[in-house]
């Protein structure tokens, strides 16, 4: 069979060479390219994406359904305390002393002299004492704390007050109660004693909200809030942005760089900030670039308020 095929192959080859002796190749004429019409183009496939449902574990107290429950809980606990008045201290720590000023050095100059002259003695003798005192403002005084812009403060205060107002809390303003107390003749408004008198007379709880600039924070600042009972000085709640729910080290562990992936775990241990920090990607000439957008002060303050509310509700329910 093989020999037969070989003979046939030789036969075909021979005839082929005879017929193709012109040096050109036999080939097959094919079909033309069909024109491109719109009905040829297939529509993009319909994508069916089924997303997994988000974990409903209460990790983020700022989630809508959790905030509603928290406000209701705070409202109930607040009502059992007969709706106490809450005085808000914005970035103003309660000073240790009543006076914001203290002396660091004092110089006493004492002089004695005799004056004589003129046609009529007697001589005059004199003695005088002059005291120089150098005073400093207390470190905790409001003017020494880092101050943010006014519009930033408005947004922050708005974000903090909103959850409390939603829960029906009675909020009083520090400046207003100071002025009212001062107008009653207690002392000069702004003095330390007026602060205390105003707090004792016109508020039941003092909410102190402090913020400091921090390079470790992903949003550039850290927050601290505490709630004191004005009558007794008892601390009811203490919320720090470092242990606040919803804050923590950034989620990303690796960063893509020109030399490959970079482990960020060690760096992130030092950093704190909102976990759900918004990110988006923007296309550029060198590919996609990640842009981080820190949350607005309103949302940061909102979250701080919810954490304070939770701490207060915990404290009131226990007591």
């Amino acid at each position: 069979m093989t020999a037969y095929h070989k003979s046939w192959g030789t036969f075909l080859l021979t005839w082929g060479l005879v017929l193709g002796s012109g040096g050109t190749a036999p080939a097959q004429q094919g079909g033309a390219v069909p024109p491109l019409t719109q009905d040829i183009i297939a529509p993009p496939p319909v994508r069916k994406v089924e997303m997994m449902s988000r974990d409903s574990t209460p990790k983020n107290p700022a989630a809508p359904q959790q905030t509603e429950a928290l406000i209701a809980r705070f409202h109930a606990a607040y009502a059992t305390r007969k709706r106490p008045r809450l005085a808000l201290y914005w970035n103003r720590a309660l000073a240790e002393t009543l006076d914001e000023w203290y002396g660091t050095e004092r110089m006493v100059v004492t002089g004695q002299g005799t004056r004589s002259g003129g046609p009529h003695p007697p001589m005059q003798r004199g003695q005088d004492t002059t005291v120089f005192e150098h005073q400093r403002r207390l470190p905790g005084a409001p003017s020494s704390r880092p101050q943010a812009g006014e519009t930033w403060a408005w947004e922050f205060e708005d974000g903090f007050q909103k959850p409390f107002l939603d829960a029906g809390a009675v909020l009083v303003d520090r400046v207003a109660i100071n002025r009212l107390t001062g107008a009653e003749g207690a002392s000069t408004p702004g003095g330390g004693d007026v602060d205390i008198k105003a707090l004792r007379q016109m508020a039941d709880y003092m909410v102190e909200i402090l913020y400091v600039g921090s390079g470790r924070s992903t949003i550039g600042y850290e927050l601290h809030a505490r709630v004191l009972e004005t009558r007794t000085g008892q601390i009811l709640a203490n919320v720090n942005s470092r242990n606040m729910a919803g804050w923590g080290p950034p989620r990303e562990r690796y960063e893509v760089g020109p030399e490959g992936f970079r482990d960020l775990e060690e760096e992130n241990e030092e950093r704190v900030g909102p976990v759900e920090e918004r990110q988006h990607y923007k296309a550029g000439p060198h590919g996609f670039k990640r842009h981080k957008k820190p949350p607005k002060p309103y949302h940061v303050a909102n979250r701080l308020a919810y954490n304070v509310m939770k701490a207060l509700a915990d404290a009131w329910e226990i007591r």
Binding site: L12, L13, L17, G20, G30, V33, P34
Partner: peptide, 21 residues
């Protein structure tokens, strides 16, 4: 719209049955 066999070594060994686009 055709197949051109440019190599004389396979000139008479292969056949292009059809070409379609």
């Amino acid at each position: 719209n055709s197949v051109s066999i440019t190599d004389h070594r396979i000139l008479n060994k292969v056949y292009v049955r059809n070409v379609t686009a």
